[in-house]
């Protein structure tokens, strides 16, 4: 829990410094993306730290590539 607070407060500080800078330059789209990305990232991070199961992208990769791998290995043994 402490870790979580720590990370979130760090992010908050960094964001508070960065967002005004983006505002100054009139980067509107960039600002939206920034906020979106940070929220997505910290959401994932928090969920992970809270122990929520998140689908693992490697599982998808495993699903796609295992047949290929097996074919190649079958060929080479």
């Amino acid at each position: 829990m402490l870790k979580f607070f720590y990370i979130v407060s760090c992010l908050l500080i960094i964001s508070l410094i960065e967002i005004p800078q983006l505002k100054k330059k009139e980067f509107k789209r960039e600002r939206m993306f920034y906020i979106g990305f940070v929220l997505l990232g910290s959401g994932l991070l928090t969920a992970n730290l809270m122990g929520v199961a998140i689908p693992n992208p490697l599982k998808a990769m495993e699903y796609i590539y295992t047949p290929i791998s097996e074919v190649v290995y079958g060929f080479l043994t």
């Binding site: 720590y6 760090c10 500080i13 960094i14 410094i17 960065e18 800078q21």
Partner: peptide, 20 residues
């Protein structure tokens, strides 16, 4: 931008020190 860089370093340091 420069201020950001320094802050980055400082936060990294804080992280390393505070985290024990």
């Amino acid at each position: 931008m420069k201020r950001f860089v320094t802050l980055f370093v400082i936060s990294a340091l804080l992280l390393s020190v505070l985290s024990g």
